[in-house]
């Protein structure tokens, strides 16, 4: 009974994230993978729990799933490198997961350039993770340019959070 309840919650949570970012799950390979991996590969009682160091929630919140960039830059600062070091270690431990790295830009740029800038940022993260031993076969990159801001005000406090690369963990090796 208890397990059933948790399963329903998990399904609900997955449904929610699919709504907020449909494109991430549009790829049929990763869409199937997320459900299977999160639901079965681990102790269901702890899966999704932020205290379980093997959980995706732990990766997102404790390791940190994102790094930030300066205006029009794609170089990794010390804070970003520290975060990515943690991401690399987590991925080397949790080898069932692959990642999609999303590169983003703030709204202060033209659409095409921001797509290219997001690609640079995602690539900077990819190169770092690969340099720390993560297999390139586990990493894919995508740029959203300025299409998916998380903060919506038009000043630097928001822009700083939007200039980001987010490492999205998906279960299963990428196809």
């Amino acid at each position: 009974m208890k397990t059933l309840t948790k399963s329903i919650l998990l399904v609900a949570a997955l449904g929610l994230s699919a709504c907020t970012n449909p494109d991430r799950f549009a790829d049929s390979g990763s869409a199937g993978g997320v459900g299977a991996g999160a639901g079965t590969g681990f102790d269901s009682g702890a899966a999704g729990g932020v205290n379980d160091p093997r959980s995706v929630a732990y990766f997102q919140q404790t390791v940190g799933d994102r790094v930030l960039f300066a205006v029009d830059q794609s170089t990794l600062g010390d804070t970003a490198r520290g975060t990515l070091e943690g991401q690399a270690q987590w991925l080397l431990t949790n080898t069932d997961y692959s990642v999609i790295i999303e590169g983003h830009a703030d709204e202060q740029g033209t659409r095409e350039y921001n797509l290219a800038l997001g690609a640079r940022r995602a690539n900077a993260v990819e190169e770092y993770l690969v340099s720390r031993g993560v297999s390139p076969a586990r990493v894919r990159v995508v740029s959203y340019g300025k299409e998916r801001p998380i903060e919506i005000c038009s000043d630097e406090t928001c822009y700083a959070k939007n200039r980001r690369a987010v490492t999205v963990v998906t279960a299963g090796l990428s196809s």
Binding site: P22, R24, A26, D27, R111, V142, E147
Partner: peptide, 27 residues
């Protein structure tokens, strides 16, 4: 509106359109 679409462009006689879509998850 299930996928992001960007920057459509007409063909020289207007019969076709090129554009960018995220329907595979990638532009």
């Amino acid at each position: 509106s299930t996928s992001i679409v960007l920057a459509p462009r007409f063909s020289p006689n207007g019969d076709r359109v090129l554009y960018t879509s995220y329907e595979t998850g990638f532009p």
